[in-house]
Amino acid sequence: MSSTNGIEHIGITVPDHDKAIAFFDAAFGVEQLFSQTDTNGGPMPASQVGRMNGLRKGTKMLKVSVLRFKNGPNLEVFEIDHPAGTTNDNIADYGITHFSVNVDDIDAASARFTDAGGELLSEPYDLGAPEDGQGNRGVFGRTPWGLLIEMEQFKSPITYKPSATEERWLPES
């Protein structure tokens, strides 16, 4: 029987691949591992890859790269020639609405995020139960193209249900 090991990557579509890569590097210090379009040529039309990944007919993947955060899932960044939808999704919308980045210092991470061109939705705040605890703080921000990203700092353990058999996975510092 097959087992699930965990999330390997999250894919996002952005309006400008190169600007997005620069933002993620400036905001989070990611490493660009590889570019599938550099390796395989590009652009890649839906007629070539759509059967594999659901790319809408008549569109092309202009650029695709995989980024590595220090510790956690990778991020695959797509630029599509005719994207659909909006860039200002929120947690009331269907689908993946945001992802969270675990940080050691929420204030420094917030400053780096805004210095890179992102916009915070609020000031960092204390997390509520069951994530509450001394030093546990969070904040949501939007990238320059509108993607919602949450940043969370956990200095104290969080509270689990008594019946929980696993603990939440958190990246190592």
Rank of each mutant, 00 (worst) to 15 (best):
M52D: 04
M52V: 00
N53V: 12
N53Y: 05
G54C: 12
L55I: 09
R56T: 03
K57I: 07
K57V: 07
G58M: 14
G58C: 11
T59F: 15
L62Q: 08
L62W: 05
K63Y: 08
V64L: 14
V64A: 13
V64H: 12
S65V: 05
S65N: 11
V66Q: 15
V66C: 14
L67F: 04
L67Y: 05
F69Y: 03
F69R: 05
F69N: 04
F69T: 02
K70N: 05
N71M: 08
G72C: 10
P73H: 14
P73N: 09
P73K: 14
P73E: 04
E76C: 09
V77I: 15
V77Y: 12
F78G: 04
E79D: 12
I80W: 15
D81V: 11
D81C: 11
H82A: 14
H82N: 14
P83M: 03
P83G: 02
P83N: 03
A84Y: 10
G85K: 07
T87K: 03
N88A: 10
N88D: 15
N88Y: 11
D89G: 05
N90R: 03
I91Y: 10
I91T: 11
I91L: 15
A92W: 06
A92Q: 10
D93H: 09
Y94N: 10
Y94A: 14
I96F: 02
H98V: 06
H98G: 04
F99L: 04
F99E: 02
S100P: 00
V101T: 13
N102V: 06
N102A: 13
D104Y: 07
D104M: 11
D104F: 03
D105W: 06
I106F: 07
D107A: 02
D107W: 12
D107L: 08
D107V: 00
A109H: 02
A109N: 00
A111D: 08
A111C: 00
A111F: 03
A111Q: 09
R112D: 08
R112K: 13
R112V: 04
F113P: 04
F113T: 00
F113Y: 05
T114N: 12
T114R: 07
T114A: 12
D115I: 09
A116R: 04
A116Y: 06
G118V: 10
E119L: 05
E119N: 06
L120S: 01
L120C: 04
L120V: 01
E123G: 01
P124R: 11
P124E: 14
D126I: 06
L127A: 08
L127D: 02
A129I: 10
A129Y: 15
A129P: 09
A129E: 13
P130Y: 10
E131Q: 03
E131M: 09
D132P: 01
G133T: 02
G133M: 05
G133P: 07
G133R: 00
Q134N: 07
N136A: 09
R137N: 07
R137G: 13
G138M: 13
G138A: 15
V139Y: 07
V139D: 10
F140P: 02
F140Y: 07
F140G: 01
G141N: 04
R142K: 14
T143G: 02
P144V: 09
P144H: 10
W145Y: 15
